[in-house]
């Protein structure tokens, strides 16, 4: 608990730091100087605070979504971007662009969530039918499924000249976050809280169907609850800031190595570390080619794929 509070303070400090990074002149000095404070304060409230909040909310929720998925699929290598979930959400957005471009953003998100859920269901359906001789097969199937869906999305996006619009969703980017354009992410925060309340159910489900039934829980209900949370979180994040790849994979695995899989204990850490990693990546994204920005999805892709490889190649523990 002491460590957790310390870590919270650390993330808070990181968040404050991220408030003062950017092109426009917002620093503690300009905020205090009467000549510039009005403008600086407005910048802070309209752009910087929403951006940092969006980073925290998206980072925490996506990491927790990855954690839940790993428990329910019982595989350490799945997360929304290695299971076809993210690609299905994007397909949903393309369908909205084609058929009902004027839809309010919340309905767009719900359509994307419905597609995400369907895509994840297809993924789980394939897993049930394929003999899983190695745990690496699971993310491979997910990546292939995601690739197929993405190819279909790209084909139709190309046909209807929407490639650029859809690509904006495919690569995570927080540079367009302003007040009024990130509030949807509070939904994913709410879902993260729901996940915490149901943490023990997810841990039990992570022991497998037999253990779950033995302990008196309805396995299918727990699975359904988890998949609804994962799909909604994925959809809200993709709609507001785009795909942040590998986040849900890297963060839970780091936490697992240190404190294991008891979700009641690990879930707050996963949320916190996810937020911290996204803030840090966003700071890097804003600094490397300042005054321009690299999309955070790119930075996360580089760091995340490196860590993903590390976990794949890491030697397994005794007795496995």
């Amino acid at each position: 608990m002491k460590y957790f509070l310390l870590a919270c303070l650390g993330v808070f400090a990181l968040g404050v730091l991220s408030l003062f990074i950017g092109v426009s002149d917002v620093t503690p000095m300009t905020l205090l100087d009467p000549a510039t404070s009005t403008h600086a304060f407005e910048m802070l409230m309209v752009s910087r605070v929403p951006r940092t909040l969006a980073l925290v909310l998206a980072g925490a929720a996506l990491s927790v979504a990855g954690l839940i998925m790993q428990m329910l699929v019982r595989n350490r290598f799945v997360e929304p971007s290695t299971a076809g979930t993210v690609e299905s959400a994007s397909l949903g957005l393309l369908v909205v662009m084609l058929l009902a471009p004027g839809l309010p953003v919340i309905l767009k998100m719900l359509v994307a969530a419905a597609f995400a859920m369907a895509g994840t269901a297809v993924f789980l359906g394939i897993l049930r039918r394929v003999p899983l001789r190695s745990e690496f097969i699971v993310p491979l199937i997910g990546l292939m499924l995601g690739g197929v869906i993405e190819a279909g999305t790209n084909f139709f996006a190309f046909r209807y000249d929407l490639l650029q619009s859809i690509n904006a969703y495919m690569i995570g980017d927080f540079s367009a976050i302003l007040r009024g354009r990130y509030e949807l992410l509070w939904i994913s925060f709410g879902l993260t809280c729901v996940a915490y309340v149901a943490a023990d159910r997810f841990t039990v489900a992570g022991l497998g169907q037999d253990f779950t039934t033995n302990l008196g829980l309805d396995y299918r209900k727990v699975m359904a609850l988890g998949m609804v949370i994962v799909s909604l979180v994925t959809a809200t994040v993709v709609v507001t800031c785009g795909v942040i790849p590998f986040l849900g994979l890297v963060v839970p695995n780091i936490v697992r190595l240190v404190i294991g899989d008891h979700l009641r204990r690990t879930l707050p850490w996963v949320a916190l570390l996810g937020a911290a990693l996204v803030i840090a990546c966003d700071i890097v994204a804003r600094l490397v080619i300042a005054p321009y920005e690299i999309p955070i999805g790119t930075i996360m892709g580089v760091i995340g794929s490196g860590l993903f490889l590390y976990f794949l190649l890491r030697r397994r523990g005794y007795g496995e």
């Binding site: 019982r74 595989n75 350490r76 992570g206 022991l207 497998g208 037999d210 033995n214 294991g260």
Partner: peptide
């Protein structure tokens, strides 16, 4: 009930 061959992936 405890079945045989229990393989856990969860780290508990």
């Amino acid at each position: 009930i405890l079945r045989q061959d229990n393989h856990l992936t969860a780290r508990l």
